[in-house]
């Protein structure tokens, strides 16, 4: 049985409108006009246990509306949603007891208190039996290396440390499904890696189903086997990263480092798109020439020190897709 089944989900907001100027302000005192804004226009997907899915899209695409519906905060205008066998908005308390949510921008820990006090209070809120809590906490402290942080007041933690604690806080009640909203936002490079590794391990070792919304494409690239791309309330793509690339371009890149900086390459079935000293980036279409052929071709003509094939950076691809759908 899928963890999440979404069928034709739609959500329309009513926004009150006001005409500009003094007259408009006066008029709105008496009479407000409302305009329908469609945030979700009938989307469907299912997510199986143990999947780690990236849910991406530009701002205002409908990402957070979807997540709010799935987590039981928002009642949709239409469609059917089943999460862990329940309809989220019909049994809020029962539903949220089985999910975990982490907001990268906001901590759920109590600012002035040592981390452990927040954890203890969360145990009470989620009614976790004491022995289960002990066990889970020990595990989390072990895997996330929290032992030194537990007695520190939250306000004294670094952003990365706080994110680790927040992640642990969301897992204390052993949820089967975890929503991560921009978990690496504002973190330094090392902290980002740490968080990604933790998420990967939770997913792999404990079979935790994870939905990740983010603007950091490195998160997606290093974590998600599957991506759901949404814009203007519609799903543009639901599939692997590979398929997302193909949506924009089949282009591949070959980076070569020449033995001799002054060599000039031409007469191959590829385009030089970037040159930085001895380092060249070539673009080619795998339908016309395979990577192996191209490499053979180049190495037989030019002295090469090193080379590797690269996909177009996911950032560029996503930017391309957003742009296409905006125009």
């Amino acid at each position: 049985m899928p963890v999440i089944a979404v069928e034709n989900l739609s959500k329309t907001y009513w926004v009150s409108e006001r005409a500009p100027g003094t007259w408009g302000a006066l008029k709105s005192l008496v009479h407000r006009r409302h305009r329908a804004v469609e945030a979700l226009g009938g989307i469907s997907f299912t997510i199986q246990p143990g999947e780690l899915v990236g849910y991406i899209g530009p701002n205002g695409a409908g990402k957070s509306t979807t997540v709010k519906v799935l987590s039981g905060i928002l009642v949709p205008s239409g469609g059917a949603v089943t999460v862990l066998g329940r309809t989220p908005w019909q049994e809020r308390a029962a539903h949220v007891a089985h999910i975990g949510v982490v907001f990268g921008q906001r901590t759920q820990l109590w600012w002035d208190l040592p981390v452990i006090e927040s954890f203890d209070l969360l145990r009470e809120i989620y009614r976790v039996p004491r022995e289960d809590y002990r066990k889970t906490l020990d595990e989390l402290v072990e895997t996330m290396a929290l032992s030194e942080l537990l007695d520190t007041p939250v306000r004294l933690l670094s952003l990365g440390q706080r994110m680790r604690c927040d992640l642990a806080a969301a897992l204390l009640h052993r949820p089967e499904l975890l929503f991560l909203d921009e978990p690496t936002i504002g973190l330094d490079a090392i902290a980002k890696l740490t968080v990604r590794n933790l998420v990967k391990r939770l997913n792999r070792d404990q079979g935790l189903t994870v939905i990740l919304t983010t603007h950091d494409m490195d998160d997606i690239e290093s974590l998600c086997s599957r991506v759901i791309l949404i814009n203007r309330g519609k799903i543009l793509l639901d599939g692997t990263l590979e398929r997302m690339r193909q949506l924009v371009t089949t282009e591949r890149r070959l980076v070569i480092i020449l033995a001799d900086e002054s060599t000039w390459i031409d007469g191959v079935q590829a385009r030089v798109i970037h040159r930085d000293g001895a380092r060249l980036t070539l673009s080619f279409d795998p339908d016309q020439i395979s990577a192996a052929e191209l490499i053979g071709d180049i190495t037989s003509h030019y002295p090469i020190r090193d080379l590797y094939v690269e996909a177009a950076p996911i950032e560029e691809i996503v930017a391309q897709i957003y742009q296409d759908t905006h125009t």
């Binding site: 039981g72 905060i73 308390a93 029962a94 949220v96 007891a97 949510v101 906001r106 809120i125 989620y126």
Partner: peptide, 10 residues
């Protein structure tokens, strides 16, 4: 911040 409270079973 109210969203967070809705995410807890109380």
């Amino acid at each position: 911040g109210f969203d967070r409270l809705l995410l807890r079973p109380r």
